[in-house]
C-alpha cells in the first residue's frame, strides 16, 4: 500500500526533479499540443457565440482544410496558390453551409442543429476522402516556408529539443488569436458579430444581417481550422484518424466555457500540458494510452464542481 502511495504521490515528482530537462521537454510538448487543441476549440467558440450552434464538425473542418491544401498541391498547384484556393474553398463551405443547412434550420431546437453538424461531419469525411483519397498524406511544410529544423537547449548539462515547427505553431497561433481579437474589437463587422452573440433579435432590429454574419463566422472558424490543420499536419500527418484527436477540443471547451475565447486558450493549454504530464509520469502505473481518456475524465470531474466552465457565467434558472 505504501509503495502504491509513493508511486502516485512521490515517485513522479522525484523523477521531475531529477531530470529537469526531460520535464521541460514534456511541458513544451504538452504546451504545443495544447495550442492546437485551443485553436480547434476557438473555432467552436466563434460559431457558438455567433449562432448558438454547437458545431460538431469543427474538428473535421481542421482535417478537411489540411487535406484540401495537400490535395491541391498534389495536383500540381503551387503551394501558396493552393493555400489561397483552400481559403476560397473554406469560404465556399461557410457559404454553402449557411445557404443549404443553417438557413433551413432557423428556430429549430439546439439538439437538431447539433445533429445536423454531425451529419455535416459525415459529408466532410466522405467528401474529403472521395476527392483526395483516403491514404495518409504529409503536409507541404517546406513549400509553405515553415521552418523544419530544431534547436537544442542545454540547461546545466541537460538536453531540451525545440522543433522549429512547434515554435512556428506557437507564434502563428498567437498571431491568429491577436488578429481575431483586433478584428472583433476594432472593425464594424466584428462589432456586429458581438452584437449578434449578445442578442439575435435585437441585432436584427438594428439592421444587422444574420445570414451574412453566419457566413463570416463560419468562414472565420474555417480559417482557424485551416491554420490548425496546417500546423497539426506539419507535426504528424494529414488523415482522418486525426478526428479522434480533434474531439479533444470538447473537454477543452468544457473547461473553458462554450462562449469564452480566453477560456478556450487556457483550457487548451491545461488539457495539453496536463495529459502529457499524466501520460509520462503516471501513465505507466495504469499501462499506457491514458492520453486517450484523461482529458475527458478531467473535464467530467471539473463539470461536477463547476458546470459553467472556468470563464462561463453562473446560470440562474428561472420559471
Amino acid at each position: 500500500m505504501d509503495g502504491l502511495i509513493y508511486s502516485i504521490l512521490g515517485d513522479p515528482f522525484v523523477q521531475m526533479w531529477q531530470m529537469p530537462d526531460f520535464f521541460i521537454q514534456v511541458i513544451w510538448e504538452g504546451f504545443v499540443s495544447g495550442i492546437l487543441y485551443a485553436l480547434i476549440a476557438l473555432g467552436f467558440v466563434l460559431i457558438f457565440k455567433a449562432s448558438g450552434i454547437f458545431n460538431f464538425a469543427q474538428g473535421i473542418m481542421v482535417v478537411f482544410s489540411g487535406l484540401t491544401l495537400v490535395g491541391l498541391h498534389a495536383l500540381g498547384v503551387p503551394a501558396f496558390v493552393a493555400l489561397l484556393m483552400t481559403i476560397v474553398v473554406m469560404y465556399g463551405l461557410a457559404f454553402g453551409i449557411e445557404r443549404l443547412v443553417l438557413r433551413n434550420l432557423v428556430n429549430q431546437p439546439d439538439i437538431i442543429l447539433f445533429m445536423a453538424t454531425i451529419g455535416l461531419t459525415n459529408i466532410l469525411i466522405g467528401g474529403g476522402q472521395w476527392i483526395f483519397g483516403s491514404e495518409t498524406k504529409s503536409m507541404i511544410t517546406t513549400e509553405l516556408l515553415i521552418p523544419t529544423g530544431s534547436s537544442v537547449w542545454e540547461p546545466g548539462g541537460g538536453l531540451v529539443i525545440f522543433q522549429h515547427i512547434d515554435i512556428a505553431a506557437a507564434v502563428i497561433a498567437a498571431l491568429l488569436i491577436v488578429s481575431l481579437a483586433l478584428f472583433f474589437s476594432k472593425t464594424k463587422v466584428g462589432r456586429a458579430l458581438r452584437a449578434v452573440a449578445d442578442d439575435h433579435q435585437a441585432s436584427l432590429s438594428v439592421g444587422i444581417s444574420l445570414n451574412q454574419i453566419w457566413v463570416i463566422t463560419w468562414f472565420a472558424a474555417g480559417i482557424v481550422a485551416l491554420v490548425a490543420g496546417i500546423m497539426w499536419g506539419a507535426r504528424s500527418d494529414v488523415s482522418f484518424s486525426l478526428q479522434i484527436i480533434a474531439l479533444k477540443a470538447l473537454p477543452v471547451l468544457v473547461l473553458g466555457g462554450f462562449t469564452s475565447v480566453p477560456g478556450a486558450i487556457v483550457g487548451g493549454l491545461i488539457i495539453g500540458v496536463g495529459e502529457k504530464l499524466f501520460e509520462i509520469y503516471w501513465g505507466p502505473l495504469l499501462g499506457s494510452g491514458v492520453e486517450g481518456w484523461f482529458a475527458y475524465v478531467i473535464a467530467l470531474v471539473f463539470l461536477l464542481f463547476r458546470p459553467q466552465g472556468l470563464f462561463g457565467e453562473k446560470i440562474i434558472e428561472r420559471v
Binding site: L100, Q108, M115, A116, N122, I123, I125, G127
Partner: peptide, 15 residues
C-alpha cells in the same frame, strides 16, 4: 465514401 456523404446529406435533409 459516397455512402458516407449520402448518409450525411440524408441526415441533414431529414432534419
Amino acid at each position: 465514401n459516397v455512402s458516407l456523404v449520402a448518409i450525411g446529406m440524408l441526415i441533414v435533409f431529414i432534419l
